[in-house]
Amino acid sequence: MDKEKLDNEFEKLWNETPVSNPEGIKEASWKKFHSETFAIKKQKSKPWRYYAAATILLFVLIGTGMYFNTENETENVVLAGNVIENKTTKIKQVILPDSSRIDLSPDSKISYADNFALNRKIEVVGEAYFQVKKDKQHPFLVFCNETTTTVLGTSFTVKGFKEKEVTVELYEGSVQMNVKGRDQKWILKPGEKFTYGNHGASISEFSRFVDFDNEKLTVVSTYIEENYGYKVILPKEYQNQKITIRINKKEDLKTIVQLLSEMYNLNFEINEDLKQIAFQ
């Protein structure tokens, strides 16, 4: 991808900020970020800002799932055979029979039938983040209270405890929302949130990225610790290094670690037992 095309795509992504931000602030922020990111400098190290830009564009280009029109299937759904409950205080990772992945939040539960590979229907109580494997022949349906989320291949979060409102946040792809007893359908785009409660439904925007604008590398380390549960150890000489980058809030941890490794020419080691990442 040439620089002009990369620049244009990157600017579109940067402008994906909440609508509450004034256009003047967005424009000024972009100009500042653009001048720093694409400035021509003589340097011995790798051009890490281009690594960052390429990775950010990757968030846009992958996960192009499509919605699948079905009738409202919230009626008389019985899912049995497999029940997984997270009674811990940490997120639990679950790999489904079709290789889709779920990050199941504490105090949350999922259930699905034994023939899941052919009947991709799953019920959620609580909160779960889904990364769905594409299968055009078998749509993936998530039931939560009175709502149904229908998807072929994408990533999204579903949150809904019993007798409380349901929210669905879409990170990649496209999904269709249905509500029990209603003929209306809602189609979500990345960055949109569907909310249903008190018999009312609405769509609003949310920020699916976190921005680090000329921040110390230790700030990114803290973000990883707070959101992924891994302690990050950096060489002393890198702790005050500055970084400007935008990260998908639901990005895979290893992708982020590999990116930082490339940006600063560092090796890393992940210790799963200690939940620790050491750069060197």
Rank of each mutant, 00 (worst) to 15 (best):
V94S: 12
S105H: 13
S99F: 14
G126F: 04
E163R: 02
L152Q: 02
M66C: 15
D114N: 03
V151I: 06
N178K: 08
F161G: 03
E163H: 11
K92C: 00
N72Q: 07
A128D: 09
K159M: 08
A128E: 07
T64Q: 15
E163V: 15
S174A: 11
G181F: 00
L170V: 10
F130A: 06
Y129D: 10
L79Y: 04
Y67H: 04
T154L: 01
N178I: 13
V78E: 02
R182I: 08
S100I: 04
I91Y: 07
F130V: 10
R101M: 13
G173W: 07
I91H: 11
V151K: 05
G153A: 02
T150P: 12
Y171L: 10
L118E: 04
T64D: 15
E172C: 05
F59K: 14
K90C: 14
W186N: 12
T70W: 03
W186L: 13
N76T: 14
S99V: 13
T148E: 12
K134G: 07
V168Q: 07
G81T: 10
A128M: 03
L104V: 09
T149N: 13
I84C: 00
I62A: 09
V151N: 03
N145H: 00
T74Q: 13
A53F: 07
S174C: 00
K109Y: 04
F143W: 00
P97A: 01
K121W: 04
K180G: 05
L104E: 09
K133W: 11
E163G: 12
G181K: 04
N69R: 09
G181Y: 02
F143L: 07
V166L: 01
I102V: 15
N115V: 04
T74C: 12
S174I: 11
K109Q: 02
T150C: 04
G173R: 01
M66L: 15
V179T: 01
W186R: 08
G65I: 01
L57A: 06
G160A: 09
E146V: 13
G126N: 03
T89P: 15
H138K: 08
E71C: 14
A113H: 08
T157P: 05
E85P: 11
T167K: 01
